[in-house]
Amino acid sequence: MWLTSKIKQLLMVMKPGVVTLNYPHERPPVPANLRGQPVFDHQKCIGCGGCSDHCPARCILVRDVCQELRVMLYDGSRCTYCGRCADICPEQAITMSNSFEIACDQKEDITTRMELFMMTCQRCGRCYEMEKTNAIDRINLKGFRYDNLEQRALIRKTSETFDPTLLQQSDQYQRPSTKE
C-alpha cells in the first residue's frame, strides 16, 4: 500500500512539472478588471468627498483650507484596493488601474494630493445626493470638512459655512488618551 501510494505521488508530481513562474523575469497575466492602484482624474473631480465618506480604510481625506480651496488627499499606504471610491464617484473621476507593483520606500510616491478650486454651491453636498439613489450610499459628511492631513486623521465635524476655528482645531488634533 505504501509503495503504490508513493508511485502515485511521484506521478502526481511529475506530470505538471515546474509550474512556478520565474518572476520578475516572467510576468503573470494581469486581468483587465483587476482592482489595482486607484487613479484620480482632477479634471473630472467635483470635490464632493463621497469617496472619502465611503472609504472603508478612511485613507481619502478632505480639508477645506479656505472658502474656495479644497484639498483632497489619497494615502496609498493605507488603501485596501476595494474600489469602493470608484463605485461611489458620481463623475467617474476614479479608475482602478491594473498597476499592482507599487511597493516603495517613500510613502509620498503612492500619495495623491489634489487641490481643487470649488464653486460655493457645489460644496453643499446636495449635488452628490441627487447623483446617488441608494439610501445607504448617500453622503454623510456634508458641507465644509477639516481633516488633519499630517496625522491622516478623518475628523467627523463639519460646518455649513467655512469656519476658521474648526480648521484651527483640526490642526491641534490629538488622539484621545488616558496617559498623563
Binding site: C55, R84, I136, D137, L154
Partner: peptide
C-alpha cells in the same frame, strides 16, 4: 462608530 453600512462588508471581509 466610523463607517456606514455599505463599507462594513469590505471590513468584514478582512
Amino acid at each position: 462608530t466610523q463607517i456606514s453600512y455599505n463599507e462594513v462588508p469590505f471590513i468584514a471581509e478582512r
